[in-house]
């Protein structure tokens, strides 16, 4: 873990310097060439001087060879400087690519860990998406039961009991999926799980106590599906 982290930050650091210099790549690389050039020129002079000393004994033949070698040397020197320039460019490029690779590597490691983490969440999320759509149905079923009049007819009573059983069955299915209601009534108001929609003056209960639950809140496992909609006490 630690190694990975330092690695990623290291490479990232290097990347900063790089990104800052990118616009000036040409200017930064050209000084290098000028630095190397004096050496090349020295070499060239040496070559010419030594050629000249050798030419002394037999001038005829050697003039041509010396001319040849001079132009050849010049040609070679140009090639050499070209090659060096290219090598410098390649090593610069290699450095860049390496840095980018290291950064990608670190990024991929973190990504892999995240995917791992998310995979467990995806399942829960899929379930949550379905259950959350079913909650209004549950709410309305409960509203219906609550507003049912105290019936005196046996038939009505029987139907009502049946609907109550359906409600119980529906709730059991949801609980089986991991649904649990949130405690609200009489609890201290907690915005992490409660949503205050109204307040009421009340000096008997401590401030910020839930004094009415207007709509039930639910969790799926540890995940909050919907906060409980509540009325909260305030100082009168």
């Amino acid at each position: 873990m630690t190694i990975e982290n330092t690695q990623s930050s290291n490479t990232a650091n290097a990347a900063t310097t790089k990104s800052q210099t990118t616009p000036e790549v040409e200017t930064t690389s050209s000084p290098k060439i000028t630095e190397e050039q004096p050496q090349l020129e020295d070499l060239a002079e040496d070559a010419i001087i030594s050629d000249a000393s050798e030419t002394d004994p037999s001038p005829e033949e050697n003039t041509t060879t010396s001319l040849m070698s001079e132009s050849e040397a010049a040609q070679l020197l140009i090639e050499l400087s070209d090659a060096q320039e290219r090598a410098a460019k390649f090593s610069e490029e290699k450095k860049l690519i390496y840095e980018q690779l290291m950064r990608r590597q670190a990024e991929f490691e973190n990504f892999r860990k995240r995917v791992e983490r998310e995979r467990t969440e995806v399942n829960l999320q899929a379930k949550a998406n379905v259950v959350i759509e079913l909650l209004p149905v549950l709410d309305n079923l409960e509203r219906a039961l609550e507003s049912a009049p105290k019936g005196d007819e046996v038939l009505f009573e029987n139907i009502l009991t049946g609907v109550k059983l359906i409600h119980r069955q529906f709730l059991d299915v949801l609980i089986g999926l991991g649904l649990s209601p949130i405690k609200a009534m009489g609890e201290a108001f907690d915005p992490h799980i409660h949503e205050a929609v109204t307040t009421e003056a009340n000096n008997e209960l401590p401030e910020n106590t839930v004094i009415a639950e207007l709509q039930k809140g639910y969790k799926l496992g540890e995940k909050l599906l919907r906060p409980a909609m509540v009325k909260v006490s305030v100082r009168g």
């Binding site: 108001f189 915005p191 205050a196 929609v197 307040t199 910020n208 906060p227 909260v232």
Partner: peptide, 21 residues
């Protein structure tokens, strides 16, 4: 952003839920 009397700083959805109180 919600500042509670306990000195907590709530942000986002949670801050919104306690706004009225």
């Amino acid at each position: 952003v919600g500042f509670t009397d306990k000195g907590e700083r709530l942000v986002g959805q949670i801050a919104k839920r306690q706004a009225i109180t």
